[in-house]
Design a protein around this nucleic acid. Structure first.
Lengths: 205, 205
DNA sequence: CCAAATATCATCTTTTTGGGCGATTGATTC
DNA sequence: GAATCAATCGCCCAAAAAGATGATATTTGG
């Protein structure tokens, strides 16, 4: 049986590229594309492809959320994350949100076809580079609690301890404790390096 | 006369996409592609296209440097920056480094053709979104001096004032002055927000 | 050449951070 | 029911950052 494919990506050039790559493949049917979350969901209400190639950064929402929604509503559809970002935290989020694989946009034709085949067989697939970065402790993001994530966001936005305490109705000591455990978990010596790591890994979203 | 095009981009899918888009155009000759700085320069030593579509993030160096080099060695070649990043500072750097235009990867076919035509006519071209972000004060990055850029990099890496003073053989007072003018120029109230802005805009590269 | 910008240094005060250490409560998990 | 973890609060203290102000070389651009 043929595999039907749908793609959600706001980059016209990438859509054209993938279409060109896939049109030579006899066993793959190209169902079309969407360039935002809304039209993707609209399409899915009418047709269900076997596989969706899904970009992370869409204009009207994140691919992570779309991924969750699709995985819940159409559990049979296999989702392949697609992004230029080779960041452990994002890959992790995608895989946890129900995607079955992750491809970088510099993936080769072989990787693309391999990924599609893998997820159709019920396997998980990470492209080479993503897998490498995934297991590279360099890119690893520590596990932080919900509260810590919240406070990390405030720190990144320039809030000081007293301001955080005020905003969250907690004592200065507590705000400080959270800040300290963030520093410890990230292995950062001060807020500067903490914020850099957080922003680079989008750890506070 | 036909316009010859060469593309430098490490994303296979984007190359395929652009090739597909351009192959219908009778007045455009596709000369080929390179996926890194080295093979781009190697190609240029043999053939000179009219226009180069140039990605910013290459595996073996930045598009900014490549742009400078090409603009200097082959001043006749028109360069069109090409990136997913819609960041004022990057666009600025590219334009200053000798590129004649800037396109985002979600540009439409029309924008791509328009851009090529524009630079061939000796005009400059910014795609809609890039132009919008360019004139949006939200994304504006202050002008900082070379020394300040250097110190900003150190701050982002977690260096404290005493450490910076030590490393750069300047007094603590001077390091502090630079830090303060960075805070002032960025309109940041503390290092946390400064680092966030700097990292998001890659202002210290 | 001269003015402006840059880079340098200084002193002073208050606020914030960061390191160390301990402790209670409530929820979850085993 | 014990153990673990999350979230909360406390104190001490030294280091660093941030705010204010002023000053002097050196470089750069018009």
């Amino acid at each position: 049986m043929n595999t039907s494919i749908f793609i959600v990506d706001d980059h016209f050039m990438v859509i054209e590229g993938i279409r060109t790559i896939l049109q030579d493949e006899a066993h793959i049917d190209w169902l079309g594309h969407a360039m935002d979350v809304a039209s993707c969901l609209e399409f899915l209400s009418r047709h269900q492809p076997h596989v969706i190639l899904m970009d992370i950064g869409l204009p009207d929402g994140s691919g992570i959320d779309l991924c969750k929604k699709v995985a819940k509503t159409y559990p049979k559809i296999k989702i392949l994350g697609l992004s230029t970002y080779n960041q452990q935290s994002i890959i992790q989020d995608m895989m946890r949100s129900g995607s079955s694989g992750y491809l970088l946009k510099n993936a080769s034709k072989e990787e693309l076809l391999e990924a599609i085949e893998a997820v159709m067989n019920g396997e998980e697939y990470l492209c080479l580079e993503a897998a490498a970065s995934f297991y590279n402790p360099e890119n690893s993001v520590p596990v932080i609690t919900k509260r810590e994530k919240e406070i990390l966001g405030l720190i990144c936005d320039g809030y000081t301890n007293p301001e955080i305490a005020d905003k969250l109705f907690i004592s200065l000591a507590t705000a400080n404790t959270h800040r300290k455990s963030l520093l410890a978990k990230f292995g950062a010596k001060n807020v500067a390096s903490l914020v850099k790591m957080a922003v680079e890994n989008k750890a506070f979203l």
